[in-house]
Nucleic acid binder design. Structure first.
Lengths: 225, 225
DNA sequence: TGACAATTAAAACAAGTGTTTTAAACGTAT
DNA sequence: ATACGTTTAAAACACTTGTTTTAATTGTCA
């Protein structure tokens, strides 16, 4: 009604509104597909505001991406550090490491359940995008985190070669990202055995699956030829 | 040189050239990113030829997608059928089922090794695209195949609930697609432990990992809370 | 050779892209 | 109230997108 004046108590500032709208649109439709007009229309601001606050569309993408990914990775590292501190010098249990690696991302979905289940799809999409269009800053953020987890896993599973640890951690990340971004595919495939609101169960299911995969014998056995 | 006339013995027809160029570009850069001009320039044909032969860009996408995905899924189903026929009525080994599910896709990469390792990225990307832009025809193609494999796995692992089988198969698909599309990420992450030409080892690594995951105990145990 | 269909080529189409420019409105401190 | 820097708004920017139109070319059969 009183649109002539802006109340700065309730009405979020333009910058924040752009970030929120962009986050939701990017998550559901991808970076390239969403246009600045879609974002600014949803946010109720002018098109030029994006370039004013973020320099370019790419700048907005990096900001949106970082806002979602950074706290998740920080949380993952902290959980791992805490567990290692508590264990003294001893190797951690595999399931404990995997829990730290997987929980923060999946938990974020559960927390944003009341709103759209949209937030985390972004983080998933962030790693499934093609190499060139992924900001380098974000990629390195994942890279150093991955190294820490692989080191912990190699310590817990000394009979595995380093290459095998990397392989299996890579598989685990793939399973996680796929279950984050493609949950509807699972719901549709399972014909009611898995429902849409079962996303919260993904964590325990995934930890159990990945732990089994890591504790399997060396790869030479099964494959033949 | 003698570009005035076309030799129809060596020079592939326009339609085929478009398909080939589109396949490579789609695989490396994604569907939305690649423009018709890029495709037709690479193919050395006129822009209008795409709409002439395929009706629209979407029509071209479906054709390219089907050409890659269909033979792979046929091969997967045939391997599963052959194995079940050989086993009579008995349940198959888990590793055998997984081998049938994973081999055709990964093998396609090895076969196209002399050319670009590009072909199969398409199939991977095909399932990691967002729901709405994925052709329904292709999705159903995967869906019925998935059902067959989940049924075989449920028979081999009767102590698992149906939901658990779906979950774990979903994880396996995620691991496969991620290793198909993001092999460079693994190479970079592993710092030389896994090299770029190790893509062929993915099959045995993946079968071993997924088999371990499927044979793990029920999910209730590990997750806590 | 002449006629008819299939194919290719060039050009224009309307619509949408990210970005920039220009000017107006705003809040704040002098 | 005046002036100043910040923020918003509208319009135009040059460019690319997928698609269509129109015309020229090709191949084939009568």
């Amino acid at each position: 009604m009183s649109a002539t004046q802006k109340e700065n108590s309730e009405a979020t500032e333009v910058r924040a509104r752009i970030l929120e709208a962009a986050e939701q649109l990017f998550a559901t439709h991808g970076f390239d597909t969403v246009s600045l007009r879609q974002i600014t229309t949803k946010a109720g601001v002018n098109v030029a505001a994006v370039n004013y606050y973020f320099g370019s569309k790419a700048g907005l993408e990096v900001e949106v991406l970082g806002r979602v990914v950074r706290p998740i990775n920080e949380s993952r590292l902290q959980m791992l550090n805490d567990a290692e501190k508590e264990a003294g010098g001893r190797a951690l249990e595999v399931e404990c490491i995997l829990h730290a690696a997987l929980m923060p991302a999946i938990q974020t979905i559960k927390e944003s359940e009341h709103s759209d289940p949209v937030v985390l799809k972004l983080a998933g999409r962030c790693m499934s995008e093609t190499g060139e269009e992924m900001p380098v800053a974000i990629k390195k953020l994942f890279n150093q985190t991955d190294h820490r987890f692989c080191a912990a896993l190699a310590k817990a599973l000394p009979h595995l070669s380093k290459a095998e640890v990397f392989w299996r951690f890579h598989f685990t990340m793939g399973a996680m990202l796929y279950s984050l971004t493609q949950h509807e595919t699972l719901v549709m495939m399972s014909d009611g055995e898995v429902t849409a609101d079962d996303a919260g169960k993904a964590l325990q299911q995934l930890v159990a699956f990945a732990a089994g995969g890591f504790c399997a014998e060396n790869a030479c056995k099964g494959g033949g030829q």
